[in-house]
Simulated assay, not measured.
Amino acid sequence: MYFHVMLFLLLFSSRNISPMVPGNQTQFTEFLLLGFSETPEHQGPLFGLFLVMYLVTVVGNLLLMLIVTSDSHLHTPMYFFVSNLSFVDLCIITTTVPNMLVNFLKQSKVIPYAGCLAQLYFFTAFGSLDNFLLTAMAYDRFVAICHPLHYATIMSPRLCVLLVLLSWIISLVQSLIQNLMVTRLSFCRDHEIQHFFCDFPQILKLSCSDTFINYMVLYITTGLLGIVPLTGIVFSYSQIFSSILKVPSAKGKYKAFSTCGSHLSVVSLFYGTGIGVYLSSSTTQSSWKSTVASAMYAVIIPMLNPFIYSLRNKDIKDALRKIISKGTSFE
């Protein structure tokens, strides 16, 4: 990851990070994030709301990672993926919310051009990582329920690490490609982004250049990195449900379903809000509705995920009780 960050910054600096605009347009080095600026009197309450959500997200995901790493009973493929998902969720919300909070305090809407591109890069990379990790978790549940006797052999530590490493590489590379495509664009005088963070569809709308190739790359990567993993998840759960229905006892069916409940909830939220965001951005004329939909996707879901995996999970609750009891014993 360090290599990609250094390459990313080197490419920006080599291009002087100032987008050239055609004709007699002036140069600029910043964008304006208009996100929640339609109601200035709500800036204070919104700052408090997003600050609370950010802190809850940070504490919740860090606590979940601590629980998984500290309890040896949770050193299994499923919880390995859960802890990685928590880390990625923490990175996603950190990519967008702190900058928004600073802008609330400064009563400013400005984000530097280089900062916008960095936000594009990391948000896209971490969003893709979420996608791949959810797919890996679906495969893990498929093997556990459909091939329980071979689970330990198939879901080896080596395979789990390889799946996560491959997810990182693909996500970082595809995000780097899309960002390099943006650096070739020129922008008009209108550099107001109707959003609270930089996103590819919003940036492409502001360009004076021909964005056909950019949109093609965006659609292809969205298709390959979105639809293909979702198809894998749907296939995995179709096989899971088919196997569960063959279980003779109601108790056995409930136990099998309960192991998938948390993951299914997260998948539904992730893809439901993700599809809603991009459908709303392409069909609705209301920037406020599109911004609220994006907040659900980029802020609310990372906050909810640790609670979804902990509130209905007996293993997580037991591990948390152990940590609390150890903490109280030292007092």
Rank of each mutant, 00 (worst) to 15 (best):
F31S: 06
L33I: 02
L34E: 13
G35C: 08
F36T: 03
S37N: 12
P40C: 04
P40W: 08
G44P: 10
P45W: 08
P45Q: 03
L49N: 05
V52Y: 10
V52R: 02
Y54V: 02
L55C: 09
T57R: 01
V59G: 08
V59Y: 04
N61R: 01
L62C: 06
L63M: 15
L64Y: 07
H73Y: 14
H73G: 14
H73F: 10
T76S: 06
T76M: 01
P77N: 03
Y79T: 00
Y79S: 04
S83P: 05
S83K: 05
N84M: 05
V88L: 09
L90W: 02
I92M: 11
I93F: 07
T94K: 13
T96W: 09
V97M: 03
V97K: 06
V97P: 04
N99K: 11
V102Y: 15
V102D: 11
N103D: 08
L105H: 06
L105N: 09
K106T: 07
K109Q: 15
V110M: 12
V110N: 11
V110L: 11
I111V: 07
Y113S: 09
C116R: 06
C116Y: 01
A118Q: 12
Y121K: 03
Y121G: 03
Y121V: 02
F122K: 08
A125N: 00
F126H: 10
G127K: 07
N131Q: 11
L134H: 04
L134P: 02
Y139D: 05
R141E: 07
